[in-house]
């Protein structure tokens, strides 16, 4: 990965359709920091046509990668170009990661109409969602009309990432009643479409009932599609694609999409601001003034509340 080429030039090349340039832009987005901020500004200025972004999430083992691969196939048959951001967790201990989603997408391996990028969480809780959001904007700026955001797991971070997409697909397997009950991170609330994958197994009907029970209380809960698929055989996948296209169009037409995007911007802004604040707070605490402040509080010269005011003042000032 080289940043020798000025970012603007790289951006222009990416916008012209150069895949290598796009790939490097995504690396810049992943790395965060000043360059990413610059890239963000370029994306905003480019005002590219909006892409349709779909989050695909669910517990490990649900078959998301296979399903995503199958969806790509259907999209391509419908002559749609699509990009995939496949996000996997990094090891919290070593910072490394094994990213294996591409393996299942070998049908798309040399298709010019598909772009697959593996992204690791890099242990940055808030930062990952930021990197993913920026990644989506970069892909959008480079002309990709459909973006699939595939995340593993159903923790807070994964749900947040999915929330950065226009529409969320939650993938379950038959017999996962407990998962539905547990409703981790509010997954049942964010889903726009449910998929019961591996639908050749037992327990499909019960799982469908469990889902319907869990979303009954949601406004518009009745309208949420629950689609059965057998991703390894491609069964149910055209129906899923159709549901995605239709739901997205409906959200757009009703104005809901615009509402969500604004909410997303607010969420992203808050998240990014908090992230930045956290950084500045740490720096302020570690700085000479911060250390002296702590000593003064410890020796009773200054109360905590006064200390907070001083610290915040320092942060704003610097």
């Amino acid at each position: 990965m080289s940043s020798a080429a000025p970012l603007q030039e790289l951006f222009d090349r990416g916008r012209r359709g150069e895949r290598g340039a796009l790939a490097r832009l995504l690396s810049v987005a992943e790395a965060g920091g000043a360059q990413a901020a610059q890239l963000d500004a370029l994306c905003a200025a480019a005002a590219a046509p909006r892409a349709r972004s779909i989050g695909i999430t669910g517990a490990p083992g649900a078959g998301k990668s296979t399903l995503t691969a199958a969806l790509l196939g259907v999209a391509r048959n419908a002559d749609q170009r699509a990009a995939v951001l496949a996000i996997d967790p990094s090891s919290p201990l070593t910072g490394g990661a094994i990213l294996g989603d591409r393996v299942r997408m070998h049908q798309a391996a040399v298709d010019e109409g598909v772009f697959i990028r593996s992204m690791a969480s890099r242990g940055q809780q808030g930062g990952l969602a930021q990197a993913a959001s920026l990644g989506v904007r970069v892909l959008e700026a480079c002309g990709w009309p459909w973006i699939l955001l595939e995340t593993v797991g159903i923790g807070q971070v994964e749900v947040e990432i999915s929330g950065r997409a226009d529409l969320v697909v939650v993938v379950l397997n038959p017999g996962w009643g407990d998962e539905i009950q547990a409703n981790k991170a509010g997954l049942m609330e964010v889903a726009d479409i449910f998929v019961i994958n591996k639908a050749d197994r037992e327990g499909v009907a019960q799982t469908r009932r469990d889902i319907e029970g869990a979303i009954a209380a949601r406004p518009g809960g009745q309208q949420i599609p629950v689609i059965e698929t057998i991703a390894t055989r491609g069964e149910g996948v055209p129906e899923l694609w159709q549901a995605i296209v239709e739901r997205h169009a409906a959200l757009d037409a009703s104005g809901e999409l615009a509402v969500r995007r604004r909410a997303r911007i607010a969420a992203e802004l808050e998240s990014a601001a908090l992230s930045a604040l956290r950084g500045r707070l740490a720096a302020a605490m570690a700085a000479e003034e911060g250390v002296r402040l702590r000593e003064r509080i410890a020796s009773g010269d200054c109360g905590i509340h006064e200390g907070v005011a001083t610290l915040l003042g320092n942060i704003v000032r610097d």
Binding site: G100, V103, R233
Partner: peptide, 10 residues
């Protein structure tokens, strides 16, 4: 028969 869903990445 379709394809076995491999549990590991190879």
């Amino acid at each position: 028969f379709g394809d076995w869903n491999t549990p590991i990445q190879t």
